[in-house]
């Protein structure tokens, strides 16, 4: 029951975020759509033609009051229509986004998973060697790697592994000879192309997991049941197992923040490696002022994160008996 409520709340949240995006762009001084309309008219289009063209792009009549535009825009949104791109004339925004989103979802998930794994392993090591140089090295490296901006890491990795040592490709998600799908040559080429982007995600991401894991591990290590497990004569393996699960579960609450950071990072990483994902799409849209694409990317990214969170909460409730969904 709670799951249904969570989904409902998420839908409302997505609706609110979309509405904010709508008003944000249109109520700003120099509303790009009316600027566009006037430009078209100046270029010699009849007002009717210009209105029509702007309507195709933004899903609302440019000369109506903002509230009427909002209703028109919403009706189209419910039908899954986000307007068309300004740069790539006539291409629906949804098409652009759904071509880009899978690439980002796959790379961000892999990056999240691997950096999480590395983070928890280092966190446990750092916690069990507390107050030694090992722990202080791990913590310092973790927090500095976390603080170095992803674009710096991305540029550095690209320079080292592509320009200096021609090891990995500099751009794209797969070789031009391959056809995307479930075939080995494509998957191999894909894996080869994502090494550098993933490396960047991981370097930027593992630090926060490491620090969080260290603190939960230390907390659990001091819990009474850990001493009890030792006194009960359980094997080391099982005690580590108890420690691990009890320290990892609280990290689920960090998932939300981490996913946001990852998607934010994808804007920089994908534009540095010219990777055809949603981050790159957004970065391009921003530099070319392609407002419909921008709005669409923003809404879809937010929606993805919101639903990923519902999923994470659900998983958390399944794994931790104390939490009910």
């Amino acid at each position: 029951m709670k799951l249904i409520r969570r989904i409902a709340v998420s839908l409302v949240l997505i609706f609110v975020v979309s509405s904010i995006t709508f008003f944000l762009v249109r109520l700003m001084p120099g509303n790009p759509y009316s600027v566009m309309y006037h430009k078209l008219v100046m270029q010699g289009m009849t007002p009717l033609q210009a209105e029509d063209q702007v309507k195709g792009i933004m899903n609302a009549m440019p000369n109506e009051p903002v509230f009427v535009q909002y209703i028109q825009w919403l009706t189209q949104l419910v039908h899954g229509n986000l307007g068309t791109s300004i740069e790539e004339t006539g291409v629906p925004v949804t098409e652009l986004i759904f071509n880009a989103l899978p690439w980002t979802l796959v790379t961000v998930s892999i990056g999240l998973f691997v950096s999480f794994l590395i983070g928890i392993v280092l966190g446990v090591i750092s916690a069990s060697r507390r107050d030694t140089w090992v722990s202080s090295v791990i913590d310092n490296v973790g927090s500095i790697a976390h603080a170095i901006p992803v674009y710096v890491t991305a540029v550095a990795l690209l320079y080292l592994f592509n320009v200096v040592w021609h090891v990995f490709p500099s751009s794209g998600a797969y070789g031009i000879m391959e056809t995307p799908g479930l075939n080995w040559p494509f998957l191999a080429s894909f894996a080869y192309h994502i090494v550098l982007p993933e490396g960047t995600y991981i370097l930027a991401g593992f630090g926060s997991w490491e620090l969080a894991m260290k603190s939960t591990t230390i907390m659990v290590m001091n819990d009474d049941f850990m001493m009890a497990a030792r006194i009960r004569g359980l094997t080391r393996q099982r005690i580590m197992n108890y420690l691990g699960w009890n320290s990892i579960l609280p990290l689920f609450t960090l998932f939300m923040l981490s996913l946001g950071t990852m998607f934010g990072g994808s804007v920089f990483i994908e534009s540095t490696y010219a990777f055809p994902g949603i981050g790159n799409l957004l970065a391009t849209a921003v530099t070319t002022r392609d407002y419909p694409v921008m709005e669409g990317c923003f809404m879809l990214t937010t929606a993805t994160i919101i639903f990923a969170n519902v999923l994470a909460d659900f998983l958390y409730a399944v794994l931790d008996p104390r939490i009910t969904m």
């Binding site: 819990d223 009474d224 049941f225 001493m227 009890a228 497990a229 030792r230 006194i231 009960r232 004569g233 359980l234 094997t235 108890y242 699960w245 009890n246 579960l249 931790d320 008996p321 104390r322």
Partner: peptide, 23 residues
């Protein structure tokens, strides 16, 4: 040690509420 604990000597803790693995 592990063999001795619980097979020969067992213990009940002060805050027994917290001595069970919550998961």
């Amino acid at each position: 040690q592990r063999r001795l604990f619980w097979e020969k000597v067992a213990m009940v803790f002060q805050a027994a509420q917290n001595t069970l693995n919550p998961l």
